[in-house]
Design a protein around this nucleic acid. Structure first.
Lengths: 145, 145
DNA sequence: GGTATCTGTAATCTCCGTAGTCACAGTCAG
DNA sequence: CTGACTGTGACTACGGAGATTACAGATACC
């Protein structure tokens, strides 16, 4: 239907990894603590980021997760496209309209195109922010409080 | 969670009303036929558009719906904001993160701002298209087929 | 005035995606 | 060998959306 909160969890986890980058591998349990969530849920989200080449996982004792690329090369759009399925943000008809009506014959494809264009505008904005920006802003807010 | 398909149904219904504008009032049953949906569902969506001053309803026998404003003054953004609730298109955390972590303390508000900015970009694009545009494009596609 | 045709709306149902949880196999350090 | 991780499948709980039923209120028309 719409967008899940996986993007938010993924950005959070990646920023956490960037924050602790010098302290070595971070386990899904540690990350889950910051998210107040479940290690399994975290591993599933991070698994999607691993498939996208954004993080790497190390199995076994002492294992965990780390960024696979510099934080300033990971945009919020990268994260979004990695963890969300490719169903449009703005859904068209719940089920196809009548083919025996002029409007019904063309509305679905027209809307799909317009909604896709709107989503591209959203994506362009997400692409202007990186995990490095996010970490910087989080630290700035902490210092200002 | 995300966006419903009400926007698609509403744009469809409004374009239908613009298309049949010279033929007088259209009943929810007629519109539901084009949408292959239910008259009650249609009335609920049109009810939101009525509250927004986009359509007017006439009760009683021979009653029905018509546009309250010229089709070229109704943008897709008008429709979107009328029928969708005001929960963000891009949701933040499913439930608040840990306050005992630097990331957790600031991520939620930061993401809310960034996601809102992205949604404004999407909204700006929707505001560039009207119901009149939509009807014109539907008719063009019909003529071209 | 009676009746048929509409809107308006509450109540209920089903369906489906998401987050959360449990269980357990695989991997690896010490 | 043991303990600490990841990787996944299976299951449950919950909530929102769309569909449906039911019925009250309004109005045109005979």
């Amino acid at each position: 239907m719409g967008v899940s909160s996986r993007t938010a969890a993924a950005v959070h986890a990646l920023t956490f990894l960037a924050h602790r980058h010098d302290e070595g591998l971070q386990s899904s349990a540690t990350i889950a603590e910051s998210l107040e969530s479940n290690p399994v849920v975290v591993r599933r989200v991070l698994g999607l980021l691993r498939e996208a080449g954004i993080v790497t996982a190390t199995e076994g004792a002492g294992g965990g997760w780390r960024l696979a690329r510099p934080a300033d090369s990971i945009t919020l759009l990268d994260v979004f496209t990695s963890v969300e399925d490719d169903t449009p943000v703005l859904p068209t008809h719940a089920h196809p309209p009548s083919r025996s009506c002029v409007i019904g014959r063309h509305m679905e494809s027209y809307l799909a195109e317009e909604f896709a264009a709107a989503q591209r505008a959203l994506a362009d904005r997400l692409a202007t922010r990186t995990i490095a920006d996010t970490l910087r802003e989080v630290r700035r807010r902490e210092a200002a409080s």
